[in-house]
Design a protein around this nucleic acid. Structure first.
Lengths: 181, 181, 181, 181
DNA sequence: GCCTAATCGAGACGGTACGTCATGTCTTTAG
DNA sequence: CTAAAGACATGACGTACCGTCTCGATTAGGC
């Protein structure tokens, strides 16, 4: 039943968009009573968050460092950009959007997903930086670099709504790897 | 009448949030008939966009270059971060959020606001870069740099929901100004 | 212009019914501004009443007595029944209907149309009765007979919504002509 | 819930008239959601018809024959005339009026109320006629007499909007009882 | 192995907002 | 100066979902 609901929510979001993804619609599609949904989830955001957590971990996972730091970073960013085309990426995009409109969503999204994701991003980025520099960077320094790394791609996709190109990836990677002055 | 509606929408958004900003609420607050609103605007997004266009131009305007390029960039980014605290910035944040949920909103926001804003950003950034380098950068190069410039701040604010700190500003400015390799 | 409005109202009523006959619709159909209608008429009832008065007089007119009183009465009632099929009859039916729902309509319909029509009915009925009885009936007696004469037909048509048959006409005529006991 | 709605509709009709009796008004007065009304009734006509059916049966019931046929008929007609002063009678009057303006109302009113009422009228009239004549009248003959019986009173009340007087009642009774020639 | 409690589907309920239509008043534009 | 065009505040329309609330009907699991 839980899976029927999560899949119905996922499908509806991809097919019809966030607004048309109503609790009634999810219930009907999942062949489930509305009350059953309310018993287990607080809102449709809660459902989508559950769906996201199940699906997004691997889509945004870091590969082990395999080449030059620049190549590793650009290929990770390429993967991030691709993720937003996948169903799970669309769920994340919708939740990020709705988080701008609703504080509860913002809090839930950050506590239940973004915080852990950021930890994974810090770890992945650290692994790459360690191969690049002699002294391993301190965690709080890396933390500050995550926005520098992910910001340009997310700005291009979410704000500008335009495709990510290789120039942007390379410039971003260089920016992250530049020596602190 | 037009102004009463735009102000009512603005006020409601700041006080109650995007979802609670309904057409009926705007109409009641503006002392205007619902039909009158539907005569001139297609949706509340349309209203907020009008309000934004009137208000946001100066909030995101570039100052003339006045110091080192790094200082100019960090102080512009500081202004951008501050803008999201202002009413007009909250309108932009809400519209950016809703644009992730609704294609029509995305199209309207980009065509009616973001495109022109990006042109202003390209111009402002160019003016600074020209003082920095000998040969003035080509416009299409600068265009690519805008995401690099604005992405980290927007990611920090909109995605992470965390305050912008000086380290981020400085790192971002350095990234934009680093020599193309 | 007056005629354009009256005809538009008439046509709309026959084609679309009373409820769908709106002031806006009449104005559009007559190629006239709403305000112009409001300048000359108080309501759509007022318009229809004007249309009715122009058209109904002859449709409900009494023919000169030509045969036996019974034949004269049945043929008049046959004409009355037929009148409700005509456009003007449908206007009258609508106004009679609306008069049950709205006191102003009831007053206007009676003062501007029914009172005179009843006078014509009294006169027509008197002319027939005079040929039947020796002493001419007193007007107030005849007045009482008008409901007896017209009631059965109007009940059959307006209340029962069923066609009038010859039996009803003959029985009604006999009832009116029966000697006062 | 059902009763709250029917009573609210009844009350509003009597206090404010048919036009001012809106679905929203009924809902508000009954302390019920609009959607609940639409779930169970198609329109306000449907509601009033339900109210009428519950209330009107006794108001238009025939008493057992108790005196001379003439007296029985006049007293029944007197009761009918009085009925139109009662709340249920006003509902019937409004529905009869609206039936002239709207075919659906006409059909519903006849199928759901008038048909059965006419059957009761035929039965009641037959019972009286049987005491008057030796051979009991055939049902289809009586059916034709019902319009003759009720038409004058309804014409006086609904068309002329004038009070019913004893002369009319007596003349009507005589007309119904006159021997078929 | 039965019973009691939790869970399920179904869907009615009081609400809020939607977007539309017609009302009657008013202002503007053009002949 | 009149009439067309149509904007305006008002209020009802019928619809869609919301989140809460009964309803039986299963369906377990603990006695």
């Amino acid at each position: 039943m839980r899976l029927a609901v999560l899949n119905a929510a996922d499908d509806l979001l991809v097919e019809q968009g966030f607004t048309a993804t109503t609790i009634e619609g999810i219930a009907a599609r999942a062949g489930v009573a509305k009350q059953t949904i309310y018993r287990w989830w607080k809102s449709k955001v809660d459902i989508l968050l559950d769906a996201l957590i199940d699906d997004a971990r691997e889509g945004l996972a870091w590969a082990d460092p395999a080449g030059t730091p620049t190549d590793d970073l650009t290929s990770h960013l390429r993967r991030v950009a691709a993720f937003f085309q996948e169903p799970a990426g669309q769920v994340l995009q919708a939740l990020l959007g709705h988080a701008q409109l609703d504080k509860d969503t913002a809090v839930a999204l950050r506590e239940r997903f973004l915080r852990e994701q950021r930890a994974r991003d810090v770890a992945g980025l650290s692994a790459i930086l360690e191969r690049h520099t002699d002294r391993p960077p301190r965690p709080e320094t890396v933390d500050g670099l995550v926005d520098l790394l992910l910001g340009p791609v997310s700005h291009r996709i979410l704000v500008q709504g335009a495709p990510v190109d290789e120039d942007l990836l390379r410039a971003t990677a260089r920016a992250v790897l530049q020596p602190a002055t």
